[in-house]
Computed example of a mutant assay.
Amino acid sequence: MVLAYLCAPPPGLRWAPIAVAVVAGILIVSCLLWAICCCRRCRHHGKKPRDKEAVGLGSPRGTTTTHLVQPDVDNKGEPQPWGRLLLSLQYDFGSQEIRVGLRQVADLRAGGPGGTADPYARVSLSTQAGHAHETKVHRGTLCPVFDEICCFRVPQAELSRTSLQVRLLDFKRFSRHEPLGALSLPLGAVDLQHVLELWHQLGPPGAAEPEQTGELCFSLRYVPSSGRLTVVVLEARGLCPALAEPYVKVQLMLNQRKRKKRKTHARKGTATPYFNEAFTFLVHFSQVQSVDLVLAVWARGPQFRAEPMGKVLLGTRASGQPLQHWADMLAHPRRPIAQWHHLRPAREVDRTLDLQPRLRLPLPGS
């Protein structure tokens, strides 16, 4: 018994052979798995897949060419799709007025990366510089329906040398409006004995914009509860460099009568003056449909006498962008709405104040 006890292994070493065997088995299995993975990886790098070889444009063995992926289409002989304009013309030989009906536009090009635009139309005659009609702005569409009519007085003797010019523009509140297309229609080549309504193909917008008298940026804010109309004159640009000390007059008219007048300080030696001056007028909620707001840029000309360089009319007798700005102010009470406006000739604005009927705009809370 003593000899058997001496020959038996100690209790702590009885499991040592089993542990060594398990560790050895794990090492052998790991080596086998590593060898299999290496073999597969070598086979993968040594053989190219068929799909990559078929579409690899840089591989000399590829069967697909760049013309199949991105064909080179030659459109030099086809007109660019700028859109189409449905236009109606009617000439009254008695009053010597031409009525231009802007019906609708189809298939305009998107002005921005969003795939849509905020188009409006500007209509003018080649023989009447500075006299133009602007339609309402239509938001988020490439097929706007205008249904607006404007009139121009054209003597019959001038029809042969007069062209009707229509420009489609993408409205931008704080930057220059992007042109979308244009139409120039010689009236001498049109039979005005009958009422015409035809589709016309729009062409690319002209490189040169019609001569402008400048632009003015201001904001409007109306609070119906207190009747406070706040006008903040911000800045102007594009003014004639020969003018001296430009400033802005803000005039509020009620029922075609001058009621209140304010003006900014003059800015010396600049064609892009910055004002940032606010004026507040009290306009009762019941009177807001009868108000005309006129902003005029004045400056000293070569005769050293202050003259109006251009005006902007807002209110229910305005049209185009000024009418849209006024409507946005009423639709969003208590919030300032800022926008750039083209200055119109002073005589044209004065004529509009005398002749243009008022519109009924929806009021907040009505």
Rank of each mutant, 00 (worst) to 15 (best):
S286W: 11
M329T: 02
L252T: 04
A306Y: 07
Q356H: 09
L330R: 06
N276K: 11
R50M: 10
R41F: 07
C39P: 02
K311Q: 12
F304I: 04
D118F: 00
R122A: 00
L3A: 15
L187R: 03
E245S: 07
R43Y: 09
K76P: 01
P71C: 04
I337T: 07
I149Q: 08
S225Q: 13
S163M: 03
L102N: 00
A299P: 04
L363W: 06
I98P: 02
A278M: 15
L229E: 03
Q324H: 14
H200T: 01
H194P: 00
S225D: 15
D118N: 14
G58R: 11
A242D: 13
Q324P: 02
T280L: 04
L57Y: 01
V349C: 06
Y222R: 02
W326R: 10
Q356N: 03
R176T: 05
K263V: 01
G58P: 01
Q339S: 14
L180Y: 01
L169R: 07
H341F: 15
G203R: 08
H45D: 10
R84E: 05
A331Y: 01
D328F: 07
L3S: 14
I337L: 12
L89W: 03
P336A: 02
G301L: 05
K172T: 03
L102A: 05
D92H: 12
L192V: 05
C150V: 10
L57N: 02
D354W: 11
A318S: 15
P155K: 08
P205R: 00
R334C: 13
V291F: 00
V154Y: 03
L196A: 00
L343I: 11
Q356F: 05
V22I: 15
G130H: 03
L57I: 07
V248S: 07
Q324R: 13
L363K: 01
K268N: 08
P205V: 01
P308I: 07
L108R: 04
K260F: 15
I98R: 00
N255H: 10
R176M: 12
K268E: 14
G25T: 14
H67K: 07
R103N: 09
Q104G: 07
G269Y: 03
G111Q: 02
L295H: 08
R139L: 08
V291Q: 10
R99L: 10
D354R: 15
K76N: 09
P144S: 08
L125Q: 03
V166N: 00
P71Q: 10
A129N: 05
G227F: 00
Q324M: 11
E209H: 05
P144Q: 02
F281C: 01
H67I: 01
